[in-house]
């Protein structure tokens, strides 16, 4: 569904992604693993064209999306959940959802506010509160809900477990499972191997912007040298 082919991205002068290629098949949850600074967020931003890759191809549903403005990519059904939540703190929960709203899309679930409040019961109680009044966990829920309002068929989840309590992460695991069962495709960037193992079908490991591993979790577990070098404690 999403094909990333030999992209190179720079951040200022730093060469962040080097010839990075991977695929995300429809209906799969793929975890992009690696330490901070490895280039996970830049990969996500490059897909959304928030960072413009200097070379390489990215196709979504066989359509070339390199150089497209970000909002057009979002309108193709590619939803982006940023790493540091970036909710609109001065807007209420409902208004935040309204910003993410897009018209229904063929072949994707059409989310309503009520469906999202079912998925995230905490948000329902706080629907008229401003974003800044929410706790960190609630903000994390809101940023996902906001993206779902755009009825995406594919979601980019950038480090959803960063700085969140283990109890909230457990809730997140349930939500991702639910999204998968609704037919959504997910690319998830993570550092928390425990979390990735609980939700992902396969993983891509990157280090300094270079792909080090691409395969299923079983394969990864059978290669402890890779796991230990880039991930495991």
């Amino acid at each position: 569904m999403l094909k990333v082919n030999a992209i190179n991205s720079f951040y200022g002068k730093a060469h962040v992604l080097r010839n990075l290629s991977f695929n995300v098949p429809k209906g799969h949850v793929v975890a992009l693993l690696g330490r901070n600074g490895a280039g996970k967020s830049t990969t996500m931003k490059s897909i959304m064209q928030l960072v413009r890759p200097s070379s390489g191809e990215i196709t979504f549903k066989d359509e070339d999306i390199v150089r497209l403005p970000s909002h057009q990519i979002a309108r193709l059904g590619l939803g982006y959940v940023p790493e540091d939540r970036r909710i609109f703190t001065d807007l209420t929960v409902i208004e935040n959802l309204l910003v993410g709203w897009q018209s229904p899309r063929e072949g994707a679930v059409t989310w309503t506010q009520e469906m999202l409040f079912d998925l995230f019961p905490n948000l329902a109680e706080r629907r008229n509160n401003r974003g800044k009044a929410l706790s960190g966990g609630e903000q994390q829920m809101l940023t996902i809900a906001r993206t779902l309002m755009g009825n995406p068929s594919f979601v980019l989840l950038d480090e959803p477990s960063e700085g969140v309590a283990p109890v909230i992460i457990e809730q997140m695991i349930k939500v991702i499972g639910q999204l998968k069962s609704e037919g959504l495709t997910v690319l998830l960037s993570e550092q928390n191997l425990h979390f990735a193992q609980a939700v992902a079908d396969s993983t891509v490991i990157i280090e300094s912007g270079v792909k080090m591993f691409d395969g299923t979790l079983e394969t990864l577990n059978s290669k402890p040298e890779i796991r230990d070098a880039y991930l495991a404690a």
């Binding site: 979002a74 982006y80 910003v99």
Partner: peptide
């Protein structure tokens, strides 16, 4: 609402499908 959202974080508004 979009204007107020853009006041805070224009890049995010664009990533949510709004032509900023």
């Amino acid at each position: 609402v979009l204007v107020r959202a853009a006041t805070q974080d224009r890049e995010m508004v664009s990533a949510l499908g709004v032509n900023q």
